[in-house]
């Protein structure tokens, strides 16, 4: 058991409104040092606003933000960004074009003396595998290298928390995994509280220790990625984390019935919405009778559209043989099914 440390940054009921929109609607979130929190939401949901508010680039309209044992933001009170000890890595990185890689990383270290600064810079460059590019200009670097410079620069001052805005979005598939590897090990070594904003659910679940789901300015759910995925608190939260089949079910005496199968239901009799993840449905020799309507090759899997009693659902079939269209049977994995009252 780990001892629960007080959070590095505590966001409590923060609201931020722009003319015509409520960007943040009483958002509460705790960032703990040494842990990576991923904030997942569609674009325009207020993720970036939250980053800017936490970084002190914008005031809060209500609620407050505490960090390092002191108050950072409250209505009418904002510690300026330079006084908060919170790092921020922008989506476009915002490297200084007039400074070399080493100078960029050293930018925030003006309080150290020269030898200490040099030592810190070379330590960071080594950690992010950038030592050989120390004297290069930012525009000569690859996307992944620029990414690492921006993160090393932000970590140089040993911030209590580091915020990253869509850090992997500009990178191509192969590179993405590689950069993510280097970046994550560098981030973990920093022992700061990390907040990563992303709109990619797969990435969020792979990277996060704690996941926070956001939509339309509100925090929908927070918890471990596994918990959020398997026990979404709402349909909106469920949809954020990946594809889901939504089927109308009928609850009778503690059992929810659907054309694809039944699960136990802890709710009163009546109609309900059954959310089934694609991997929760599996073609089998026995089980619910369905018709395979359509099959698409998807690389590692086949995407199969099944139909029963006029209701369609999509599943991912893995295995050597290609499913044939026509009558089939499937079984449903109750772990991957959730019920929501109508």
């Amino acid at each position: 058991m780990t001892v629960a440390l007080p959070p590095s940054v505590d966001i409590r009921g923060v609201t931020r409104a722009y003319p015509g929109t409520l960007a943040l609607d009483s958002v509460s979130l705790a960032l703990r040092s040494g842990r990576i929190t991923c904030l997942l939401g569609p674009s325009g949901c207020g993720k970036s606003s939250l980053l800017r508010v936490v970084a002190g680039l914008e005031p809060v309209d209500s609620g407050e933000i505490e960090g390092g044992g002191r108050r950072l933001s409250a209505p009418g009170f904002t510690v300026p960004p330079e006084g908060r000890n919170i790092g921020l890595v922008f989506q476009d990185l915002a490297l200084f074009p007039h400074l070399t890689v080493a100078q960029n990383v050293a930018f925030g270290l003006d309080r150290l003396d020269r030898p200490a600064r040099r030592a810190r810079v070379s330590e960071l460059l080594a950690r992010f595998k950038l030592a050989h590019r120390a004297d290069a200009w930012p525009h000569t670097l690859s996307g992944g290298e620029q990414q690492r410079v921006a993160i090393a620069r932000a970590l140089a001052r040993e911030p209590a928390a580091l915020l990253l805005d869509e850090p992997f979005s500009g990178l191509d598939g192969d590179l993405k995994a590689e950069v993510r590897q280097v970046v994550l090990s560098g981030l973990r070594a920093a022992r700061a509280a990390i907040l990563i904003v992303t709109h990619d659910p797969e990435e969020a679940m792979l990277v996060a220790d704690d996941l926070a789901l956001m939509s339309a300015g509100r925090l929908l759910q927070s918890g471990s990625p596994r918990d959020c995925y398997l026990n979404p608190s709402s349909l909106a939260a469920a949809r954020l984390l990946g594809p889901a089949n939504l089927v109308t079910a009928r609850v009778e005496a503690g059992i929810a019935h659907s054309p694809f199968g039944a699960v136990t239901a802890d709710m009163p009799d009546g109609p309900a919405t059954m959310m089934i993840r694609p991997e929760g449905l599996r073609l089998a020799a026995q089980g619910a009778a369905v018709a395979v309507a359509d099959v698409h090759f998807g690389g590692a899997f086949h995407e199969v559209t099944v139909e029963a009693e006029g209701v369609t659902a999509i599943l991912r079939h893995t295995g050597p043989h290609v499913p044939a269209t026509g009558p089939a049977h499937l079984v449903m994995d109750p772990d991957r099914v959730r019920l929501f009252p109508h």
Binding site: A55, G56, L57, P80, P81, E82, R84, I86, G87, L88, F90, D92, A94, L95, F96, H98, F107, G108, D110, R111, R153, A154, A156, R157
Partner: peptide
Amino acid sequence: TVRMAWASRTLGRGPAATAWKV
């Protein structure tokens, strides 16, 4: 860019120092 100036602010420089250094 605005973000460059902000980056400088989050790296501990005030507005005047940002203007001068960036």
